[in-house]
Design a protein around this nucleic acid. Structure first.
Lengths: 349, 349
DNA sequence: TTGTACGCGTTATCAC
DNA sequence: GTGATAACGCGTACAA
């Protein structure tokens, strides 16, 4: 439904520049510039005149021009798979808050996990001369990407580690998180524990899988290799995984999902196969999305501090903008096991 | 946990400009520029030489410089309350997709519903000379805001209508959506229907409330004024509203929530008060967020095409950038009632 | 067809 | 303290 009606719009007035302020006050451009910048050399009275005129004319300095001159755009590029995905948007918020506080704006780009879109987006951002780039769960293997990683603006990697270049990195304590949760379910009495992996291109997913294997061995869990389902971070993969596990001769008594959305799909899928959570099978998620705490879900999960991770990433990249040569830093944020209602003791059969 | 290790970084190489390409090829700047722009005047062989050199040198035109020159930044500003909120992030995705397709980037800013943050963000975006602004559910009454609405770049309003200025507007068919759902529950047999409003500063919330009143009267619903709870779009307000409705001498048999998150809180709150959905009370949401369809929620809701709305908004603003004087347009996207499991016939007491 | 010169808005440098 | 001028990188009107 589209309705149109003509309106009266003003003849798009031209932008007022510093030149206009100079003309208005009868001062020189440079004096006005200095006054506006609050330089100490300018006489207070002169400064007052300038400020008044600038205000009256509605003058606002063009960041475009300033960027050209300063060779710095005061903007950060952020690449993410999908802002509309609840398990990733919190990162963006974190980056944004810190960036804004530092006078920077963020340029956002969604890649949908597509390498081509990522390459295009990175190029576009670099063409815009962003001061820094925050890459959230992005591809790192492609040669075009690596080229930009090497020759482009400062980069911070979020949730994915570069195998070669030592770049600033922000991640979560995958090892500690999985280990803590494994011990927890172990104490509950579980010893047949399934595991849904994330995409193994991601270093985080690999770390978690490895920790699962190691801890399972340490705790003496059984048949761990048979209980691994190679998945991704999605609800639908949760449904698939449920079918896989439910179809086993002897299903596990507990399953680690790849993330919360995956866990939710898993729980629904199990229920469709007549298995109840946590009575028949316990489920552990990862993320702690906002909805995980509602009673209808009540999901036991490993909390990731995504917003804080975003903040940390922004801090690192801004720091490197200020000092390009500083040694690489990596920040690992702690995780926390949030015990809710999807975990219980295994059935005593 | 922070670990640092020194790394070898290259001495941040200088950006290669069009000048470098000119020097490299021995041609004039303008020739290179024309060749790069694909102007027909340039001889194909010359063009080939230029392209090769540009490619070899890794030349990429600076959009900053281009923006200054063109008086146009090829960027769109997007203001939203909170990207991390699942009921609003889809808008951003829509805007972004269309913007990108048109060669534009988006600058994102979260306001958390705070007027001050909105004013700051709008200023920052305008200082960056964005070509257009997409305002999603933002304040419109403040004089500083109105000033920018009048004198700033082209603006599209999403989900909030300006009472005075006729600005491009994208909304959803609130009237049709609420009416359809009201008739639906009416046919189920409900006649005491509660209603949780959104913040009434929003024109959408007001439209829905008014439609509720009109349709309730039309259908002969009872005590409608007593069954209105003034709320906002949040889970917590859902809990509060549940207490309000459950505490009534005679609670309604059906409740319209302000949105899906609100509905989820409402359902949980009702359940805590011993009321079961939909057995005792039916609930209708608004949005159709991704999780609404999971079995654990199975929420009957009025679907809003948020992504499409974002796309439409981007189209409108880009169109106005191209033709500032065109008549104002308003696009109303249809809504659709998605019937799931939270609605049923009222108890036959 | 190619080259020269200028402007976009700002800030830094250097005379006055 | 204030003012003139150059430079940032690109596009384009105009001259050759």
């Amino acid at each position: 439904m589209v309705c149109q009606y003509s309106g009266d719009r003003m003849p798009d007035q031209k932008k007022v520049t510093i030149k206009d302020v100079a003309r208005e006050t009868g001062l020189a451009l440079s004096t006005v510039s200095n006054a506006l910048a609050g330089k100490s050399m300018v006489r207070p009275e002169t400064r007052a005149i300038v400020m008044e005129a600038a205000d009256r004319l509605g003058y606002r300095a063009s960041i475009v021009a300033r960027s050209l001159r300063a060779q710095r755009s005061f903007a950060l590029g952020v690449l993410i798979e999908d802002v509309a995905n609840p398990s990733s948007s919190a990162f963006v918020r974190g980056v944004e808050d810190v960036a804004n506080a530092a006078g920077c704006t963020i340029l956002l780009a969604d890649t949908d996990g597509s390498l081509e879109r990522q390459v295009d987006a990175m190029r576009a951002l670099i063409d815009r001369r962003v001061d820094g780039l925050v890459l959230i769960s992005q591809h790192l293997e492609d040669e075009r990407v690596r080229e930009m990683l090497r020759g482009g603006p400062p980069v911070v990697l979020l949730q994915r580690r570069d195998p070669v270049l030592d770049l600033d990195y922000v991640g979560s304590d995958n090892v500690g998180g999985v280990k803590e949760a494994m011990h927890f379910v172990g104490r509950l009495g579980h010893s047949r524990v399934g595991f849904v992996t994330g995409p193994l291109g991601s270093s985080s997913a690999r770390e978690r899988l490895q920790t699962y294997r190691e801890t399972a061995e340490e705790l003496g869990f059984r048949e761990t290799e048979e209980l691994i389902y190679h998945g991704r971070y999605s609800f639908d993969v949760g449904l698939e995984a449920a079918n896989f596990f439910a179809g086993l001769r002897e299903p596990p008594t507990c399953i680690f999902a790849s993330n919360d959305m995956n866990a939710i799909g898993l729980i629904q899928g199990l229920s469709e196969r007549g298995l109840s959570v946590p009575k028949d099978i316990s489920v552990v998620g990862l993320d702690d999305i906002a909805l995980a705490r509602i009673k209808a879900l009540d999901l036991t999960t490993i909390r990731l501090e995504k917003r804080a991770m975003g903040e940390e990433a922004a801090r690192l990249v801004l720091r490197r903008v200020a000092a390009p040569q500083r040694p690489t830093a990596c920040v690992i944020l702690p995780t926390r096991l949030i015990v809710r209602g999807t975990t219980a003791q295994p059935r005593a059969d």
